[in-house]
């Protein structure tokens, strides 16, 4: 090995930092990446997971089974045989196709009826998914200054990458990076993420829960949850805790930044509180929930009068 040997891990980090710096300096064609994403999405089929109506329509498109028997062949003889077989068996295939189509149509009709009932239910009880969508479009305006010191202190000495989920415009993330921590942000709202990117920070434009689901097991040294923890319904919050336990390395630090329930819905958070299904947990609730997923050393820190910070450590296995 010569003196010219390059540390490729360091080089990869340098390249990523260079891209962030050039992006922040406006050296890249504006909107080019997003235009690429939009262009490919034009040709991709719709996502099947979220849109019930689209999934149903797609299913209905496939309901009618085509009874045309393929007779093409590279061999003229085989082609002739296939055509004869097709004529002989055509009536049977049509009969079979009609049976299958009838079954599929019946199932689809039942699904439509079921869908209608669910919609009626949602009208009565409130459409959680729609409310979540509306709420997620509202930037989570928080005064990061309130908890900045607690978060920074909790993460000092943290080995490995730190994800700040819902990093917003990047004030907190910037503070962490400034102290030498290897932190990156996740922010679902592109317009808000742009503000963080403009600071030269590393930010993934992604849903926080989806991002955590995608990262590898024990891949994170630290995890900061912000914004999302005040809006998500209880079931999703518990899933988020599961994900945090799975993605943090043993000894990794979890930090939850949250408004207090009493201050939720006042001032800047009024619209959020009106539109979303969740609300902030009481600090003691985190004390009850986190140990079940293997977190220890759980501490609650006041962050001004309106907010608190929970810190916890992923136990060694």
């Amino acid at each position: 090995m010569t003196d010219d040997h390059v540390d490729i891990h360091k080089l990869a980090a340098e390249i990523e930092a260079e891209v962030r710096a050039r992006r922040a300096a406006g050296e890249y064609p504006p909107g080019f990446e997003r235009e690429l994403d939009r262009m490919f999405d034009r040709f991709a089929p719709p996502e099947v997971s979220n849109d019930f109506e689209a999934a149903l329509e797609r299913s209905e498109d496939l309901v009618i089974v085509d009874p045309v028997i393929p007779v093409a062949s590279r061999s003229p003889v085989l082609g002739a045989v296939k055509r004869v077989m097709s004529k002989l068996l055509g009536w049977y295939h049509v009969w079979l196709a009609q049976q299958i189509s009838a079954l599929a149509t019946a199932i689809n009709t039942a699904l439509r009826l079921l869908g209608g009932r669910v919609v009626d239910l949602e009208h009565v009880t409130g459409d959680i998914a729609r409310a979540r969508g509306v709420g997620a479009r509202i930037p989570a305006r928080r005064d990061d200054g309130a908890w900045q010191t607690s978060v920074t202190n909790a993460l000092q000495g943290c080995a490995g990458r730190i994800a700040v989920v819902e990093c917003g415009d990047g004030v907190l993330l910037d503070a962490l990076v400034s102290t030498g921590l290897d932190a990156y942000g996740v922010e679902p709202r592109a317009s808000v993420a742009d503000a963080a990117l403009a600071r030269g920070l590393e930010v993934r434009i992604d849903d926080g829960a989806a991002h955590l689901h995608a990262v590898g097991a024990a891949a994170l040294g630290g995890l900061v949850l912000r914004g999302l923890v005040e809006r998500a319904p209880l079931g999703e919050l518990l899933l988020l805790v599961d994900a945090a336990a799975a993605k943090l390395v043993p000894g990794g630090r979890l930090v939850v930044c949250s408004l207090r329930r009493e201050s939720w819905g006042r001032d800047a958070t009024a619209a959020e509180a009106d539109l979303v299904a969740g609300r902030p947990l009481h600090p003691d609730t985190w004390n009850a929930v986190l140990p079940e997923q293997g977190f220890v050393d759980i501490q609650v820190h006041a962050a001004g009068a309106d907010a608190y910070v929970v810190t916890a450590t992923r136990a060694d296995e």
């Binding site: 490729i8 891990h9 080089l11 990869a12 390249i15 891209v19 992006r23 890249y28 990446e33 990458r161």
Partner: peptide, 12 residues
């Protein structure tokens, strides 16, 4: 044995 990137955006 390769340059391994944590980010996969086009510019990186």
């Amino acid at each position: 044995a390769g340059l391994l990137l944590d980010a996969k955006d086009a510019y990186t």
